[in-house]
């Protein structure tokens, strides 16, 4: 029972990170029908920028109390900003000029951008994993049989707050409605006066910002950052987005948590070396039996 609850908590924590990354895939896919393969590496970049800020502030050793909290907030904000700008920059330089090209062209470009980012990050931070400063104290809390770390609570809470904010932004705000309009019908959106290029750029900014939050949270949670982190995490998050129904925001959140739980429980039941098999089997099963995903609309309606 204890072990079950511990795996549950682990799965939710992993799932929160995957969900944040999956949202970035789904937002961009929703508006451009592009799978942004570079998105996982933007997440890696977020981990490293947060790490660099925390190290520069010597947050783990020198800061405490309010100073520590401010340091953490600063690292989070820098990661958000850096990833947002990086993602929007990628769109501006690489994808925008390919908007009218055949769909394969931006897809291959995205893979190319992914390799470039991976190599640039390796050049910057080396090829070995870098320990992430241990900034959030991690005493274990007990709730009956459930034992969770404070870090886990912080990670999940931060992810959930971010997702709620995103949901309200997309559903209620004027820009969020413009994003949905462009996602549904670009011509019709421009006919009501929406600047399509700007709206797409903003979508990349937001997707990048979410990757920044995920990068910070992932660094805290895994305790290290590595230049290839985004490859594996990105693939899992992409699977999560497809599982939930790519293009569907609630689907990405649901898919993220399901993939996190699946990874955690498959590691427990059949061993960590098999968790990839479990996760990507799900991807295959979804693509075969329900290509529109759990919450996706049936494909013919999606145009």
């Amino acid at each position: 029972m204890h072990e079950f609850l511990a795996q549950l908590a682990n799965g939710v924590e992993l799932g929160a990170i995957y969900a944040l990354i999956a949202l970035g895939y789904t937002l961009v896919y929703g508006i451009l029908e592009l799978i942004n393969f570079a998105h996982g590496d933007v997440y890696t970049f977020g981990s490293f920028t947060a790490l660099v800020v925390l190290v520069a502030l010597r947050a783990a050793h020198v800061l405490h109390g309010v100073g520590l909290i401010l340091g953490i907030v600063a690292a989070l904000l820098v990661a958000i900003l850096a990833c947002a700008l990086l993602n929007a920059g990628i769109e501006r330089l690489a994808y925008r000029r390919l908007r009218k090209a055949p769909r394969l062209a931006p897809l291959i470009t995205a893979i190319g951008v992914s390799f470039m980012l991976e190599n640039l990050i390796e050049l910057w931070q080396g090829s070995a994993p870098v320990p992430f400063p241990n900034v959030i104290p991690n005493p274990e809390l007990r709730f009956g049989a459930l034992q969770v770390g404070v870090q886990q609570i912080v990670v999940v809470a931060l992810a959930i707050v971010t997702m709620i904010a995103l949901h309200y932004f997309v559903q209620r705000s004027r820009l969020g409605k413009a994003m949905r309009a462009v996602a549904q019908d670009r011509d019709a959106a421009s006919l009501v006066g929406i600047n399509v290029d700007r709206t797409i750029a903003i979508t990349f900014l937001i997707a990048g910002a979410l990757a920044g939050v995920a990068g910070f949270v992932g660094g805290v949670s895994f305790g290290s950052a590595w230049f290839l982190n985004g490859f594996g995490a990105g693939l899992r998050a992409f699977t999560a987005a497809v599982l939930g129904g790519i293009g569907n925001i609630a689907g990405a959140m649901l898919g993220g948590f399901l993939i996190g739980l699946l990874e955690s429980f498959s590691t427990w039941f059949i061993g960590g070396q098999w968790s990839n098999v479990a996760v990507f089997s799900v991807l295959i099963l979804v693509l075969v039996f329900r290509p529109s995903g759990l919450l996706g609309e049936s494909l013919p309606e999606k145009v």
Binding site: R174, K177, A178, A181, Q184, A188, A189, V192, G193
Partner: peptide, 18 residues
């Protein structure tokens, strides 16, 4: 070319996007 997945009110709001 109405926005089929949005409500009638949201469509009208988008008409007044400017």
């Amino acid at each position: 070319r109405v926005f089929t997945r949005m409500t009638v009110r949201e469509n009208l709001e988008l008409g007044g996007y400017a």
